[in-house]
Simulated assay, not measured.
Amino acid sequence: MRINEVEQRVGITKKNIRFYEQQGLLKPERNAQNGYREYSEEDLLLLQKIKLLRKLSIPIEEIRKIETGALTMEDALRRHRISLEREQKNVEEMQLFCQMLIDHEVRFSTMDALEYLEKMEHMEKEGTRFMNIQAKDRKHKFFAPLVMAVLMVAFMIAIVWTVLWAYAIDPMNRPPMPFMIIVTVIPIVIIIGVLCNLWKRYQEIKGGEEDVASKY
Rank of each mutant, 00 (worst) to 15 (best):
M1Q: 05
V6K: 01
E7C: 12
V10W: 02
G11D: 04
T13D: 00
K15Q: 13
K15W: 01
Q22T: 10
Q22S: 14
Q23K: 15
G24L: 08
G24F: 05
L25S: 00
L26V: 10
L26F: 04
K27I: 08
N31H: 10
Q33H: 08
Q33C: 01
Q33Y: 07
N34Y: 11
R37N: 01
R37I: 02
E38D: 13
S40P: 04
E41T: 09
K49E: 07
K49W: 01
L52M: 13
L53K: 02
K55A: 08
S57R: 14
I60V: 15
R64P: 01
E67N: 13
E67P: 00
G69R: 11
L71Q: 06
L71I: 04
L71R: 07
E74T: 10
I82P: 00
S83E: 11
L84D: 04
L84P: 01
E85N: 11
E85W: 00
R86F: 02
R86T: 12
E87D: 12
Q88H: 14
Q88E: 08
Q88M: 13
E92A: 15
E92H: 11
M94D: 02
Q99A: 08
L101D: 02
L101F: 05
E105S: 09
E105V: 00
F108S: 09
S109N: 10
Y116A: 01
K119N: 10
K119V: 07
K119I: 09
G127N: 07
F130A: 01
M131E: 03
M131N: 06
I133W: 04
Q134C: 06
A135S: 09
F142C: 07
V147E: 08
M148E: 09
M148Y: 11
A149D: 02
A149F: 00
V150C: 08
V150P: 00
V150F: 08
V153A: 06
A154D: 09
F155R: 15
M156S: 09
A158H: 07
I159C: 03
V160T: 12
T162S: 11
T162Q: 13
T162G: 07
V163C: 04
W165F: 12
A168S: 11
A168E: 15
P171Y: 02
P171E: 09
R174N: 07
M177Y: 10
F179G: 10
T184G: 06
V185R: 06
I188V: 15
V189W: 05
I190Y: 00
I190E: 02
I191K: 03
G193P: 03
L195S: 05
C196A: 14
C196Y: 14
N197S: 11
W199N: 12
W199T: 15
K200E: 14
K200Q: 13
K200D: 14
Y202W: 15
Y202R: 14
Q203R: 13
G208K: 08
E209V: 07
E210T: 12
E210W: 03
V212K: 03
V212R: 03
